[in-house]
Design a protein around this nucleic acid. Structure first.
Lengths: 120, 120
DNA sequence: GTATCATATGAATAGATAATCAAGTGTTCA
DNA sequence: TGAACACTTGATTATCTATTCATATGATAC
């Protein structure tokens, strides 16, 4: 154990061999952080609904707000988040802005999540 | 539009046909809520790390705390969340509590997430 | 121009949450 | 029995976040 590290766990029963083995197999810190950030985006039912809806059809902000019975402002804020995460794109037609999905893996990730839920 | 509903969007350009079509295809509100709750659990890098680690090997609280350089208490709190979500289980051996994964879909969900990240 | 409409945005607020700290279980072992 | 240990738990706190409200932008139509 390097002595320049302040280890926060001072347990005696640590299984060093197992821990080292696992440590070697763990992905980069950054990658796991990015992964958590992605799931954080999915971790809100409003955004889940928006993504699910956009997987069915391209829609304008107004349509989504009406569909989910929420204010246009709330939807707009969430669409901003989804756009920053590169999950949705938009096109402008006059005053109206149409949103659609970028990534076609999304539904697959959702379905895998549902598998877990149905098994509980 | 049923007049007993307070619609929060009063736009004029709503594409009624599209909205209705999407509405029919949307899963139950509860299901999408549960799905968001699941992803919320994945939306924290500490929990992601714990789950990834436990996918490699069964470990005690102490091992995980040491591996992630966090306090045992913080890990214990997160393990509680993961247990409530039925993502991990534990067994007791004397003073030591060993945790392991329940669901083998988890890694698959993570890998799908990574596909999205790598495509950005 | 200006009125209207669809959307965006910034500030504010209420609610959620992750880590910390301190105290509590329950087990082992001397 | 009681000290030591692995872990849990409850309260607290700092931080984050989703919605709301008010206002801004940018396009259309008159």
């Amino acid at each position: 154990m390097p002595n320049n590290l302040i280890e926060k766990c001072d347990c005696d029963v640590i299984h060093q061999d197992v821990v080292n083995q696992v440590k070697d197999k763990m992905p980069q810190e950054d990658l796991l952080y990015d992964l958590a950030e992605l799931f954080k985006v999915f971790g809100d039912s409003t955004r889940i609904k928006i993504l699910w809806a956009l997987d069915e059809a391209e829609m304008c902000v107004c349509d989504i707000a009406f569909l989910l019975n929420m204010t246009q402002s709330a939807i707009s804020h969430q669409l901003r988040v989804l756009k920053q995460t590169k999950l949705v794109k938009n096109r402008k037609d006059g005053k109206v802005v149409y949103y659609s999905l970028i990534d076609d893996h999304i539904k697959h990730i959702f379905n895998q999540g549902l598998v877990h839920i149905n098994e509980k």
